[in-house]
Design a protein around this nucleic acid. Structure first.
Length: 447
RNA sequence: GGCCCUAUCGUCUAGCCUGGUCCAGGACGGAGGCUUUUCAAGCCUUAAACCCGGGUUCAAAUCCCGGUAGGGUCACCA
């Protein structure tokens, strides 16, 4: 069988994790079976559908690399639906119904039509076998004669969804669990139009922290925000794939190809999963760590503040520190802000003399003596590398007390309680600047 | 409320089909420790779960029944 899956969002909000995971599973399933993946914008609700949301969905899909083979927009298919509605009425499956608007239970009665097209419900038992949940049965009696169109040119979700899935040859409908209860009436519709019923796979919902359905108002962060914050797309895909699915072994870092290779709808979880931003962040860090220095710098470039322009050398010297401090590219800028970990590389630190003293042994003379040693050692280094700096000072520090020697040195260079170690810090600022700063600290201590 | 779905550490999950190898494994997060005596990262260690009650069985996280809890859905939205 030639597998065809689809992702059918309504453009009524930004593309967030909930719908993204649904799209991802559909996409993976299509790829894995050498099938086709279709994007269909379900914009039949003219009130709530917005072009900007459609663009956000398309952009996000593109950024993530979820490519589709065909693209449709329901608002452009009105004629097709009208044809089906006519057939349904002619065959007696549907009828034009007189509505008593006053009796409607609908809270908002504005916009209600006096005539509407309803499906003639045969009121029977419907059963289907869901790929992830197994056998599910419903009695459609309570559904009544549900509305399938407001008029010939304004069909409603259930109808357009069924017609399109049939028309586009969708073989597997992979969608959220919230659609389970829509399935029986859609099956009724498939039968009425004489269509084959596709396979259903209802995947569990993504939940907010309070275990309710993830939604815009409920902690759902748009995928485009992650892009803007400098997340790596593979990290997002990897993490999302693991929400509701798990490979047979214990590995968690999986490439997209590995996920496609191992994915199976049978192994999809039945219970909903809470989206955990911290774990996503960990995944992103893992993927950042795998980047070469060159790739890291080029990926980071768009996120660097203007003040970093022309400071490529500094960026390179500080790279190992940056890598250890950051879990997304957008965080790099913050590292160089006032009083942040790397601000000393841009602004010469100001501090109180006493800060130069190791708290467990606050002795000015001792600190001065050790600092003078470090100064000499550093002045004597020809090739100013991190290793050479360390080798020049480390034996002395071990002999004379690491805290006593290293704390004043680090503080002299960085002026901060929290910063990289003294050797790294010296290396990042460079030999001349390091000497300058240590000399200044010595003067302060001498007075 | 009706209908439907679900139920393993705080979170994501493995195991459940084919009962014993599970005093339940991995990962995130937590706690503690190590390190170039500050941070971060890294490494090591550690706490932490089979919703409850009945069965079936020599043996149940795994099978059966009944509760309970959570979620979804009940539109002229999708």
């Amino acid at each position: 069988m030639n597998v065809v899956t689809r992702f059918a969002p309504s453009p009524t909000g930004k593309f967030h994790a909930g719908s993204y995971r649904t799209a991802l599973f559909s996409w993976i399933y299509a790829k894995q079976n050498n099938g086709k993946f279709i994007l269909r914008i379900e914009d039949t609700d003219k009130e709530r559908s917005k072009k900007e949301y459609e663009e956000n969905i398309i952009d996000s899909l593109k950024w993530l690399g979820l490519d589709y083979d065909s693209f449709y927009r329901q608002s452009e298919r009105t004629d097709i639906y009208a044809g089906y509605i006519k057939k349904l009425i002619d065959s007696g499956h549907a009828y034009i119904s007189d509505e008593n608007i006053a009796d409607s239970t609908n809270a908002d009665k504005s916009g209600l039509r006096s005539h509407v097209i309803r499906f003639r419900n045969p009121k029977c038992k419907i059963a289907f076998d869901d790929i992830v949940r197994g056998h599910i049965e419903f009695d459609t009696t309570e559904l009544g004669d549900f509305v399938i169109a407001k008029d010939m040119n304004e069909p409603v979700f259930h109808l357009t969804n069924v017609i399109d899935d049939h028309d586009m040859g969708i073989t597997h409908i992979i969608r959220g669990e919230d659609h389970i209860s829509n399935t029986p009436r859609q099956i009724l519709l498939y039968r009425a139009i004489g269509a084959e019923i596709p396979q259903f796979a209802h995947i569990p919902l993504l939940l907010a922290k309070d275990r309710s359905k993830l939604s815009k108002r409920n902690g759902a962060i748009p995928v485009s925000d992650y892009r803007d914050r400098g997340y790596i797309r593979e990290a997002i895909i990897n993490y999302m794939a693991l929400l509701g699915w798990h490979p047979a072994d214990d590995r968690e870092i999986l490439s997209i190809d590995e996920v496609i290779g191992q994915f199976s709808l049978d192994r999809v979880q039945k219970g909903g999963a809470i989206f955990d931003d911290e774990k996503l962040s960990w995944f992103n860090r893992q993927y950042m760590a795998r980047l070469s220095d060159e790739d890291f710098i080029s990926d980071a470039k768009p996120f660097l503040p203007d003040s970093m322009n022309g400071m490529q050398d500094l960026l390179k010297r500080a790279l190992s520190t940056i890598r250890s401090k950051v879990s997304s590219f957008a965080e790099i800028a913050g590292l160089f802000d006032n009083s942040a970990d790397l601000s000393f590389t841009i602004t010469v630190p100001k501090y109180n003399v006493n800060s130069l003293l190791w708290s467990k042994n606050p002795d000015k003379k001792l600190a001065l003596k050790h600092l003078e040693f470090s100064l000499n050692a550093i002045q004597g280094i020809e090739d100013f590398t991190m290793d050479n700096i360390k080798n020049a000072i480390w034996p002395y520090a071990e002999a004379n007390g690491k805290g006593d020697v290293l704390w004043p040195l680090r503080y002299a260079i960085t002026g901060q309680n929290k910063s990289p170690d003294p050797f790294t810090s010296a290396y990042i600022v460079g030999k001349n600047e390091a000497i300058k700063r240590i000399k200044k600290a010595c003067e302060l201590l001498a007075n």
